[in-house]
């Protein structure tokens, strides 16, 4: 068995890759029908900020039909509903949940109660429609100082929570600070969101890069998100998807080393040896785990074995 296949087998209980989550205005059928062409790992059909108050009903009908009836190929489909403090929250869930998206993104989660409230509603709707209980996941969006401080409790509020996501726009507004190019004002929040998500065994998604003309800024921020441990990053324009995927591409040197580590670890296991070393450095459990995850990542870029690395 090839190492990449083994890595996948090892990871088979983990979810599909979600490096990019592309926002799409929920009232724009032209964009939604071209979802697979944008190459994003997942899309976020948006009923919240991208839709004017007057068109909430139209977007809700459109999105729920699209999710229920259109084949999006390999792209994971999620829907951002309106917040629980709006008149549309319950209607959004009642119509979207029966269409069975992979997850709904719940904005402005301030506390575990917000998640429990959404979980109760979704559970009831699932029961009413004879759906698998817990099938539609929650991606809890943290975009207030209070929400960030409650990150771990929110992550643990329900089995249904699958990911924490950082909403940088609203958070900087709540903090009373400006969003800067290097994003230093979000450093703590990013760390907090990743730590809480990982501690609870969840995925973590980074906020959007809003300046679509500044590709260099996006690349730097995406790299930071990868380094900090985010599972993926939201995109607000199809042109951002490739830069985000590029940020997740493993460094060829590190990837080669990962293949050598796995090879050495397997040899050591066969020969009953304990501690081993690769390139003069000690290899132990965490090193092997990191090597597996790097190889799993490499597979997304068509690298099945060491010879594929250019």
């Amino acid at each position: 068995m090839k190492a990449a296949a083994r890595a996948e087998k090892k990871d088979e209980k983990k979810r599909r890759p979600c490096r990019s989550m592309l926002y799409m205005p929920g009232n724009n059928p032209g964009m939604m029908q071209h979802v697979p062409a944008f190459g994003a790992d997942s899309v976020l059909l948006d009923l919240e900020d991208a839709v004017s108050d007057r068109e909430k009903d139209a977007a809700r009908h459109l999105v729920s039909r699209f999710v229920g009836e259109i084949d999006f190929g390999d792209t994971l489909v999620t829907v951002r509903v309106n917040g629980a403090d709006t008149p549309w929250f319950q209607k959004d869930l009642e119509e979207v949940i029966p269409a069975a998206p992979a997850a709904v993104r719940v904005p402005k989660c301030h506390s575990p109660e917000d998640v429990k409230h959404a979980d109760d509603l979704i559970g009831r709707i699932e029961r009413e429609h004879g759906m698998l209980p817990g099938g539609v996941k929650i991606h809890a969006m943290l975009e207030t100082a209070h929400g960030i401080e409650q990150a771990f409790e929110i992550a643990r509020a329900s089995e249904r929570v699958e990911a924490l996501t950082l909403g940088g726009q609203d958070l900087t507004a709540d903090l009373g600070v400006q969003k800067t190019r290097d994003g230093v004002e979000l450093f703590y929040a990013r760390g907090r969101v990743v730590m809480a998500a990982k501690a609870a065994g969840l995925m973590a998604f980074d906020t959007v890069w809003t300046d679509i003309d500044d590709m260099e800024g996006l690349k730097a921020e995406a790299k930071l998100a990868v380094q900090m441990g985010f599972t993926g990053k939201a995109a607000i324009h199809p042109s951002q998807v490739e830069a985000i995927h590029e940020a997740y591409r493993p460094d060829p040197k590190e990837l080669r080393r990962a293949f050598r580590i796995i090879g050495a670890a397997e040899r050591a296991e066969r020969e009953g040896k304990g501690v081993i070393s690769v390139d003069g450095r000690m290899v132990d459990g965490p090193v092997v785990t990191r090597a597996f995850s790097l190889i799993g990542l490499g597979r997304l870029y068509g690298i099945e074995e060491e010879e594929d690395i250019r």
Binding site: P29, Q33, D57, A58, H61, L62, R65, F66, E69, I70
Partner: peptide, 12 residues
């Protein structure tokens, strides 16, 4: 418009 779009718009 695709059929899904047409249906959604008429229903709305």
């Amino acid at each position: 418009a695709l059929e899904v779009t047409l249906r959604a718009r008429i229903e709305t």
